[in-house]
């Protein structure tokens, strides 16, 4: 059974593409045949994060318009077996997508025995975002610990409940997961950021993971490598934990507390 998971947030710049890349890579690493689709038509980014920008020939819009085959369009990842990237078109806009066209693409992927389809949503609540979430079985709502991000996430949760295919067909609702990104426990302690408890209380959906703010996220983006592959970094480990929870394993949350300062740091910090 193929599972379709949308990574969405409403707000821009909170880490949807970073998350999509790491979740897809993590699932593939555990042996699941996985494809990650960039729905941000016109603002293509996923290929950069995945480090395959030089290998894009055809894109999602070509596939939707039946100008290329699935085999021609999918980019096979060079590092991880079972991982494929379906890039967005950079020269078109969101109007190039239609529900029927996207339905055809999802159907083809399901027939190609993919275990997971990860849909990287564009920001906003307009057509592109609605297309990305329409076919979702599950949703990873990416939220930064600040009020505007939380409110936008609340909005997108409402849209998931009313505009997804599952809601329109009166099927079991989309399963929602909360992923808090750019979490900085020290700034939470200072009251500059919302705490995990505040966010969970405001959004009232189960917590999938907390990704700490970490310089390795930017380093990996620049290097075209999903941060989950940086096993030394806290962010990479946190994404790995999130994969385990996504697959049903109960794991305690990490990286919630500010690191205790050593004597020297306390004296000179």
């Amino acid at each position: 059974m193929t599972k379709t998971i949308v990574v969405t947030s409403g707000k821009g710049g909170v880490g949807k593409t970073t998350t999509s890349a790491s979740i897809a890579t993590g699932l593939a690493k555990r042996g699941f045949k996985t494809v990650v689709i960039d729905f941000d038509v016109g603002l293509r980014n996923l290929d950069l994060i995945m480090g395959c920008e030089r290998r894009v020939v055809y894109d999602l819009v070509n596939l939707v318009n039946q100008e290329a085959s699935l085999h021609q369009t999918l980019i096979k990842d060079k590092r991880i077996e079972n991982l494929y990237i379906l890039p967005a078109s950079q020269t078109r806009d969101k109007d190039a997508l239609t529900i029927e066209g996207v339905a055809r693409v999802i159907h083809k992927l399901k027939k190609s025995d993919f275990d997971y389809i990860i849909c990287d949503s564009p920001a906003g609540i307009e057509k592109g975002a609605k297309m990305a979430l329409y076919f979702a079985d599950e949703a990873i709502v990416t939220t930064n610990p600040e009020v505007s991000s939380v409110r936008d996430s609340d909005r997108i949760l409402g849209i998931l409940q009313s505009e997804s295919k599952r809601s329109k067909m009166n099927e079991e609702p989309v399963k929602e997961h909360l992923l808090i990104t750019r979490y900085n426990p020290a700034r939470v302690k200072d009251g500059q950021m919302l705490s995990v408890d505040d966010i969970v209380d405001l959004l009232a959906i189960p917590l999938l993971g907390i990704i700490p703010e970490s310089p390795s996220v930017l380093d990996c983006s620049n290097a075209g490598k999903p941060v989950i592959l940086d096993e030394e970094s806290e962010a990479g480990q946190a994404y790995s934990d999130a994969i385990d929870r996504l697959l049903g394993e109960a794991k305690p949350h990490r990286f919630m507390d500010a690191p205790k300062k050593g004597l020297l740091a306390r004296l000179f910090g």
């Binding site: 609540i125 409110r151 936008d152 609340d154 909005r155 949760l157 409402g158 849209i159 409940q161 009313s162 009232a204």
Partner: peptide, 8 residues
């Protein structure tokens, strides 16, 4: 029987 979200 579920939360009423922002914008709803």
């Amino acid at each position: 029987d579920k939360p009423v979200r922002s914008g709803q």
